[in-house]
Simulated scan of single mutants.
Amino acid sequence: MASRIVSTRTWSTTFRRSFVRCGESSWDVEYLGVDREGGGLAVPYVNIKITREGATAAQKRELIQGVTQLLQRVLGKNPATTVVVIDEVDTDNWGIGGETVTDRRAPGR
């Protein structure tokens, strides 16, 4: 997913901020510390989708840290600008082979 500056807001003549949209989130460009030259942004965006089955906050934290470290090690990406989003999807809303995961896991199948 490409990241791009979607808006610039000016609250006064000395306070101006640009925001980048990554998926459904907006990030303050100054906060991310990214370079805006060339019109593009190099903000790595990773979206992890898992079924909602009790992943703990600690497990999600480990996933976010692990993916961030992997992008740094393999691709040389800056961890400070790496965005990781975890979406949890109910098994009724996740389909495989024309069936929901709930139905596929039903007893007696």
Rank of each mutant, 00 (worst) to 15 (best):
residue 20 V to D: 05
residue 6 V to L: 01
residue 108 G to R: 02
residue 75 L to G: 04
residue 106 A to W: 01
residue 6 V to C: 03
residue 68 T to K: 09
residue 90 D to N: 11
residue 52 R to D: 08
residue 30 E to K: 14
residue 104 R to D: 00
residue 53 E to M: 09
residue 52 R to Y: 02
residue 14 T to I: 13
residue 11 W to Q: 12
residue 53 E to T: 14
residue 28 D to P: 11
residue 105 R to T: 05
residue 60 K to A: 00
residue 19 F to I: 04
residue 30 E to C: 03
residue 95 G to P: 07
residue 74 V to Q: 11
residue 1 M to P: 08
residue 17 R to I: 14
residue 34 V to N: 05
residue 80 A to H: 06
residue 92 D to G: 08
residue 79 P to T: 04
residue 81 T to N: 14
residue 44 P to V: 10
residue 38 G to F: 11
residue 30 E to I: 07
residue 82 T to W: 00
residue 37 E to I: 13
residue 66 G to M: 01
residue 62 E to I: 05
residue 98 G to A: 07
residue 87 D to Y: 05
residue 35 D to W: 09
residue 89 V to K: 11
residue 93 N to K: 15
residue 35 D to A: 07
residue 107 P to E: 09
residue 38 G to P: 05
residue 3 S to C: 14
residue 44 P to R: 13
residue 51 T to W: 06
residue 77 K to V: 06
residue 103 D to K: 14
residue 101 V to F: 10
residue 33 G to R: 11
residue 30 E to P: 05
residue 109 R to T: 02
residue 85 V to S: 07
residue 42 A to K: 11
residue 47 N to G: 03
residue 18 S to D: 15
residue 16 R to S: 14
residue 6 V to Q: 06
residue 52 R to T: 07
residue 3 S to E: 11
residue 56 T to N: 11
residue 72 Q to A: 13
residue 71 L to K: 10
residue 107 P to T: 08
residue 96 I to G: 02
residue 69 Q to V: 04
residue 90 D to E: 13
residue 77 K to P: 04
residue 29 V to Q: 02
residue 36 R to H: 07
residue 83 V to G: 07
residue 1 M to W: 06
residue 35 D to T: 12
residue 106 A to G: 04
residue 80 A to I: 01
residue 53 E to L: 06
residue 33 G to C: 09
residue 97 G to H: 03
residue 106 A to V: 03
residue 43 V to L: 15
residue 5 I to R: 04
residue 37 E to Y: 12
residue 68 T to I: 06
residue 39 G to Y: 05
residue 15 F to N: 14
residue 89 V to W: 10
residue 100 T to C: 06
residue 46 V to Q: 09
residue 50 I to A: 10
residue 72 Q to I: 01
residue 65 Q to C: 03
residue 14 T to H: 13
residue 74 V to L: 07
residue 43 V to R: 14
residue 54 G to R: 04
residue 95 G to H: 08
residue 60 K to V: 12
residue 75 L to V: 02
residue 40 G to T: 15
residue 18 S to E: 15
residue 71 L to R: 10
residue 26 S to I: 04
residue 88 E to I: 07
residue 12 S to N: 11
residue 66 G to T: 03
residue 95 G to L: 07
residue 62 E to Q: 14
residue 73 R to I: 00
residue 91 T to A: 13
residue 12 S to W: 09
residue 68 T to E: 03
residue 82 T to L: 00
residue 7 S to E: 15
residue 60 K to G: 03
residue 72 Q to D: 05
residue 92 D to V: 14
residue 42 A to C: 12
residue 57 A to V: 03
residue 66 G to H: 00
residue 106 A to N: 02
residue 89 V to A: 15
residue 61 R to H: 04
residue 96 I to V: 14
residue 108 G to H: 01
residue 81 T to P: 01
residue 70 L to D: 01
residue 66 G to W: 00
residue 76 G to P: 01
residue 96 I to S: 04
residue 15 F to M: 15
residue 101 V to P: 04
residue 97 G to Q: 10
residue 1 M to Y: 08
residue 11 W to A: 13
residue 57 A to W: 03
residue 34 V to F: 05
